[in-house]
Amino acid sequence: MAAGRKTIRFTLNGKPVETEIANHHNAVEVLEAFGLFGARESCAQGLCGCCTLLVDGKAVSGCLYLAAFLDGAVVTSVEHLERDGALSPVQEAFIEEGAFQCGFCTPGFVLMVEQLLDRCAAPSEDEIRHYLSGNLCRCATYPQIIQAVQRAAEKRKASAAA
């Protein structure tokens, strides 16, 4: 193999995969190579959250995450939230509250909200704001996003009760 390259193996959206990467590539570039564009680079500095993906169940900024670090990890991208053609309650809540406009930031917010609700079933508005403080939305749908988080929390509660 050429210098500065490496083969990595990891689980991507539930399936084991293997790919060759350049050492200087980041995780967004790896997902793109698999045809996944839900994580996308925007600020390139860890500040906007457009490039969010989950590594071993934790949200990370793909733009600051070396591709090599994915070796052996369980990687989940936003595309994996849809199950059997059904959106997740968080995705549904975003739609119902109109919590996006251009949609470029939306996959990142959706993944972060999934994480937030996994940690805390009924977050306060203050907790929501703190948790999402590292995600930027230039369309500024923040008020609607806060409502979507609250609605998603309700939906999750309702489906847990059912």
Partner: peptide, 12 residues
Amino acid sequence: LRTLSNVRVRNV
């Protein structure tokens, strides 16, 4: 830590 950077950076 609550206001140090953001959740994703703190995770890593």
